[in-house]
Design a protein around this nucleic acid. Structure first.
Lengths: 262, 262
DNA sequence: CTCGGTAACTCGTCTATACGAGTAGGTGTC
DNA sequence: GACACCTACTCGTATAGACGAGTTACCGAG
């Protein structure tokens, strides 16, 4: 076995006042940026880096930890540290809720995923009545209780999104919306059948680091933020009829919107 | 001085197989979530935690590092580790480029910031001609050269956003758009005066961890992602007339959009 | 009173060592 | 050939110690 995957990495500058672990991280980052290590490639092991740079293991781990926080690398216990693969990205277009996309037999997620050549799944379905949080209540016009529909979306076995829809009970109770499977076209199609013609949606987008619970349910690598999207659906009278709270793995999404110049 | 800010923190569970540093992080996280430590509060020092839990300093640092990666805490050299303050959030509404917002004497950023009671600044202005990257070229219809306008936006002295506008040279050369200050209403007002009536904008949104360069220019705390927004402006003939590439501190923004149900 | 220095505290960096736990590949037995 | 085992490699967790550098408050000299 060659002593190290060296040649790809240079030496430290002892005169620099830049911390040693940062210098090591810089070199690895540059090697990744320049393509000397590619997506999914294994980086030199901690032991190899220790020998190559002549530093202690904690220093090397510190450098690798930096790269992981930047989202450039992921470590796998027992295997090594790898250049983080960029997963295929799902593009959410601003017309994704257009009525013409609703009259299918399948859900929008399924149709779109299959068109993109991926294998879609929906799991951890939960449908129950509950008291809304303050935020959700405010968006829905302060109903006392709401119907909550929770589900997780996966592409090719990888969880990409976790969503909860909230609907006022007076709208959703004893309708197909309260069923685990609401039928073709999803709950928006059912809402319209029930006489709540949808007029427009408001969406609010934030990005932040995931909570430990979100790391688990979305199986997120370190250094991957989440996109938190809250969508409110309004009917023709301006009444909010649904709020959908969605947490998405940020590395799996691009959101696209079209704005009129008015 | 009291021996420790204890009472707020419990003991470790030696029977648990959960790593000690995770247990410590769990306790601190819970104390923050429950409001026992509030925004800006100083957490117990490393030394205090070492004594309270009876572990080594590296273990405590490991726990604190976890909280920083989650965006819950920030450390300040020589001072301590603090619960990360949530800065005031700037809300970008989907009508922010409406024509009626343009006929002011000031830029949209300035007007809006002052209305919100903040002190706006714009700096590191750079205006130059350059060859576009592949991505920008593709969005602009492959011009050979473009005018690039770079600037950084600050609120109350804090950098929140870094943006670059790209315009095809045949549109922008020798116009007020090529000046450092393009005048009231910004470059969109100038584009319309030049006969490029704006029709609509496309926006693409991603979230990711910042590069080291972005950490510097936006003075980002660890555990704060960036929102990367690329906006393309189209004229009435469907020609792209500008691409604006923006990197925003994610903790300073909420993006709001309105979608028609069509 | 002002200014400078010191002391005590904070986190940052780095070394050296040890053991645990997951993975992969080879080896040897049945 | 199938399978259990062993071994060598990987990263994960934890200890103990050392020195450096930024911050703050106090105290003493001028």
């Amino acid at each position: 076995m060659p002593p190290i995957a060296s040649g790809l990495l240079g030496a430290l500058d002892p005169t620099s006042d830049r911390a040693v672990f940062r210098q090591i991280a810089d070199q690895l980052r540059e090697a990744i940026d320049k393509g000397r290590f590619r997506e999914g490639d294994k980086l030199p092991s901690e032991t190899e880096l220790v020998e190559h740079f002549g530093v202690s293991r904690m220093t090397v781990r510190n450098a690798l930890s930096l790269l992981q926080q930047e989202g450039l690398a992921v470590s796998e216990h027992g295997k090594g540290v790898f250049v983080r693969p960029r997963p295929p990205v799902r593009r959410l277009a601003s017309d994704r809720f257009a009525r013409r996309h609703r009259d299918q037999g399948k859900s929008a997620f399924t149709v779109e995923a299959e068109a993109a050549g991926s294998r879609p799944e929906v799991d951890s379905l939960e449908v129950k009545e509950e008291r809304p949080s303050q935020d959700i209540a405010a968006r829905l016009g302060s109903p006392r209780k709401v119907l909550a529909r929770r589900r997780r979306y996966l592409l090719d076995g990888r969880p990409v999104e976790f969503a909860t829809s909230y609907l006022p009970l007076d709208i959703a109770r004893d309708t197909p919306i309260a069923e685990p499977n609401p039928g073709p076209g999803g709950i928006y199609a059912r809402l319209e059948e029930l006489g709540h013609r949808l007029d427009h949606f408001d969406e609010e987008i934030k990005a932040r680091m995931p909570t430990p619970a979100e790391v688990r349910t979305l199986r997120l690598a370190s250094g991957v933020p989440v996109i938190h999207l809250v969508r409110t659906a309004f009917d023709g009278e301006g009444r909010p009829v649904e709020v959908c709270d969605t947490v998405m793995a940020a590395d799996a999404y691009v959101l696209a919107y079209q704005l009129p110049a008015t």
